[in-house]
Amino acid sequence: MDKAETLEELYTRKFDWMPDTIRNEIGHFNVFRLEPIVGDKAKPVPYKRRDYYKVMLVIGNSQVHYADKVVEVQKQALSFSNPYIPYKWEHLDQIRSGFYCIFNQHFFAQFGDLNQYAVFQPNGTHLFELADEQVTQVARIYERILEEINSDYIHKYDVLRNLVFELLHYALKMQSSSKFDKQPINAAQRISTLFLELLERQFPLDDTHQQVNFRSPSDFATQLNVHVNHLNRAVKETTQKTTSQLIAERILQESKTLLKHSAWSVSDIAYALGFTEVTHFNNFFKKHVQMSPMKFKVA
């Protein structure tokens, strides 16, 4: 898979100019109106990761590929993209309007961890279909962002951060609270969260020289300095899935992404995902997808 697109590459590709604040010591933030995309500019952007975050209001039918999933925007939606999940949009010629803001991790460095929120997590919901009334409400937030970024207020970047959080929480409130959300934070939940963070830290794979280092529950237990039985109980209690299931699901997700969106060979993918033999990878993939990796790649 190609290397992640940088902010500089985005400005060069899309605008052919570079803002003076691109490497500001407080981080970078910008906001734009999403104009109708026609002609050559309506071509889909290649499937890849970006090294920045993007929160976008899209009005119009389109389609977005997130990791190994394809999501259809029927009418209008609010989307969240981050540096860890590759994506691309299609049918851009059907997008009528909208807004989007972009920013890097450094912009929020002293203001909380964005990746703790489900909208920026690999298994979270990244796209929210909106009703007309909700579009009006979200658009108002973007109008305030545009007004604020053009102001001379000395603390305007604090206001902008708050407005981004307003968009984030607006989306999160649309999701029904899960059983997991309602549970008090306890030792089992903390261990489970540390396990999931360690699992996710191994991805995405950008280079054939990379390799997944932790493949078994005991690998993770050693890294977390807990007994493997304790880890397994904590994960099962908080996620209703076994540790092995979650590891397999994440490896399967990454394998699908690499098969569909990289030029890597099946053996390269097998090695990077920690399989000692290609046949082991083939058997693993067939078990979960009911077809061989090569058939899936060309399908």
Rank of each mutant, 00 (worst) to 15 (best):
Y66L: 02
A67C: 12
D68T: 05
D68G: 00
D68P: 00
D68Q: 06
K69C: 00
K69I: 06
K69R: 10
V70Y: 00
V70D: 02
V70E: 07
V71P: 05
V71S: 08
V71I: 15
Q74A: 08
Q74P: 01
Q74W: 05
K75S: 06
K75A: 14
Q76R: 11
S79E: 05
S79T: 08
F80S: 06
S81F: 13
N82T: 01
I85Y: 10
K88E: 00
K88S: 13
W89G: 01
H91S: 12
H91C: 07
H91K: 12
L92P: 04
L92W: 00
D93R: 14
D93T: 15
D93S: 15
Q94S: 14
I95C: 06
R96P: 00
S97N: 13
S97R: 09
G98T: 07
F99E: 03
Y100C: 09
I102Y: 09
I102G: 05
I102M: 13
N104T: 03
Q105P: 07
H106C: 00
F107N: 04
F107L: 13
F107Q: 13
F108P: 01
A109M: 14
A109Y: 13
D113P: 07
L114A: 03
L114S: 06
Q116H: 00
A118D: 07
V119C: 13
V119F: 07
V119P: 04
Q121D: 05
N123I: 03
N123R: 04
H126N: 10
L127V: 10
F128N: 06
F128P: 00
E129A: 00
E129N: 00
E129G: 03
A131P: 01
E133D: 02
Q134I: 06
Q134C: 08
Q134N: 10
T136G: 09
A139N: 04
R140L: 04
R140W: 03
R140K: 09
I141V: 14
I141W: 01
I141K: 02
I141T: 13
Y142A: 04
E143M: 08
E147A: 09
I149P: 02
I149M: 04
D152Y: 10
D152M: 13
H155D: 14
H155W: 11
H155F: 12
D158A: 13
D158L: 12
D158F: 15
V159I: 15
V159M: 01
L160Y: 10
